[in-house]
Amino acid sequence: MSLSEQQVSQIAYLARLSLSDSELKDNTKDLNAILGLAEQLGAIETDGIEPMAHPLHMTQRLRADVVTEVDQSELFQSIAPNVGNHHYLVPTVIE
């Protein structure tokens, strides 16, 4: 399995990254090399093996339904790139 430049460019878009022509070339090469490494996994028999998403066999702890947060919007918005009327602003989105 080998990725084409077109596929890499689609993957980049999926991750909202844009690549210049030379970056696209380099990344296609790199991604294929890394996926080549991943191909080694094909050699392992994993039928019937449970996938391991977490290193510990713990279960989810549940939090009491209590409101403890206070309004810190001024602090949070002081580091925002663009704010107006207490809202975060982005270029107009057409739905």
């Binding site: 993957i11 991604l31 991943a38 391991m52």
Partner: peptide
């Protein structure tokens, strides 16, 4: 990009799931 690809439709089982199984081993 590697991650986005390995999780994408059609490749999830071959990459992500496979890796989580080897992780178990």
């Amino acid at each position: 990009m590697i991650g986005a690809y390995a999780l994408s439709a059609g490749y999830y089982d071959a990459y992500y799931l496979k890796a989580q199984k080897t992780r178990h081993l």
